[in-house]
């Protein structure tokens, strides 16, 4: 199971990113565990400055915007 973290200080885009990933994972029937991380100290430890950022199994795959559907599908299938 993929462990996905969305990093962001609670902005609207971060919520949308999380919802989008959940929706696509459901469509593809891929089991994921998704959490939102809003603590600035933790975000700093991942070295992220542009939010929202997507961390999958502790690897930073994306930051700075809501990712597009294709990218999300490729991460989930990988």
């Amino acid at each position: 199971m993929k462990n996905i973290k969305i990093l962001g200080t609670g902005c609207a885009k971060c919520t949308k990113t999380a919802e989008l990933i959940e929706k696509i994972a459901n469509e593809l029937s891929i089991a994921i565990q998704i959490t939102k991380e809003t603590n600035p100290e933790v975000i700093m430890e991942y070295g992220v400055m542009s939010t929202p950022a997507v961390i999958i199994n502790e690897v930073n795959v994306h930051s700075g915007s809501i990712p597009n559907t294709k990218a999300i599908e490729s991460w989930l299938k990988a």
Binding site: K13, P40, S50, T51
Partner: peptide, 13 residues
């Protein structure tokens, strides 16, 4: 950059 990113930017710098 979006103003909601100002804290991560501050910490990154």
């Amino acid at each position: 950059f979006c103003s909601c990113s100002s804290i991560p930017v501050f910490l990154g710098f």
